[in-house]
Design a binder for these strands. Structure first.
Lengths: 187, 187
DNA sequence: GTCTATACGTCGATAGAC
DNA sequence: GTCTATCGACGTATAGAC
């Protein structure tokens, strides 16, 4: 079943890049195929449809999110747990090739709404926010929890100062996230 | 030059609604025309192209942003200024029909990157963030400024608690934004 | 496992009649 | 100011040869 040349992986890589750069809708299969010097039909051998390409690189991420949520559910609703949770989330974001998948999601919110994979990710983000705010059902807590997640994400583009390393971005994001989480009441 | 029936305004309204609901790329001119019981060609009488429809309802908003930035530039770099600035921003967001335009922007980040109107809005958002962080050039200040803006925006969807009024959302958003802004050093 | 060839729909946009 | 008719390009997807 596994072909030797890794065409499937190459398709995933190119698709991720183009979907992120120009958007899911604006990227045609013809364009992906041309970059790889194969035909559109070749793509259809590896993936049933265009959205199945998306699902393929979203699955890993969904699994990570599920693991994170499951872990959080077993912990007490304390500030320490919230801090540990956001740190683990940041790690899973900054690790390996995940940043590119993360950027893809940020860039394709709209397109993802009509895709199964997108709805699942949306769902997981809300559940993660709920886990971060657990024990404090106030609207303000919901907003702070969501913003702490967004602190991790936006550290990639909101920080425009020159010569800031990934590690520094991560630290700054977590510092700001911690401030927000500190204002959520323990359950 | 002005037609009596206000067709142009009706086109804008329907386009804004559909672009927001399903995304700019996924909404065709045919769809917009059908809703209005006219043909595509009629749309081209009122607008030179699809993206010109977008520009038409973005212009107001750009003007508001420019006014806000100009005002901020004349003020001292103090916490009081930052708080006043974010409050004015929130007001301009929650006022009149602006929430729908705002939602359109949130839903079409990707598509807007290749549209002139989108690039202009992006530029204004960064300038507003810079105005909020003026006097503190640290990366953390940039992140806090961006997050305070996002607090205003995300209050619309991040707060999922039932029976929260718009006015309450506005207040919560500004409370959280103020916390973030308080950590930015005065210039 | 990858190709050629093609079906068939829809897109944004234009020309020209009324 | 709105219409009909049409353009050329491109979209996803499939059939079937090699």
């Amino acid at each position: 079943m596994r072909e030797s040349t890794g065409t499937r992986e190459r398709i995933k890589a190119v698709a991720l890049e183009l979907f992120t750069e120009q958007g899911y809708e604006k990227t045609s299969l013809r364009e992906i195929a041309e970059r790889l010097n194969v035909t559109k039909a070749a793509l259809y051998y590896h993936f049933k449809s265009k959205d199945e390409i998306v699902s393929s690189f979203v699955e890993d991420r969904l699994d990570r999110m599920d693991a994170l949520i499951a872990w959080a559910d077993e912990q007490p609703s304390t500030l320490a747990t919230r801090r540990e949770l956001i740190a683990r989330y940041a790690d899973s974001m900054f690790a390996t090739e995940q940043p590119s998948v993360m950027r893809f999601f940020e860039q394709n919110q709209t397109a993802l709404k009509s895709l199964a994979a997108g709805q699942q990710m949306r769902d997981r983000m809300f559940r993660l926010a709920d886990a971060l705010a657990r024990g404090d059902e106030s609207p303000a807590a919901q907003l702070r929890a969501a913003l702490s997640l967004f602190a991790v994400h936006s550290s990639w583009f909101a920080i425009r100062a020159p010569r800031v390393t990934d590690e520094e971005r991560r630290k700054i994001a977590l510092d700001v996230a911690d401030e927000l989480l500190a204002r959520i009441a323990d359950g």
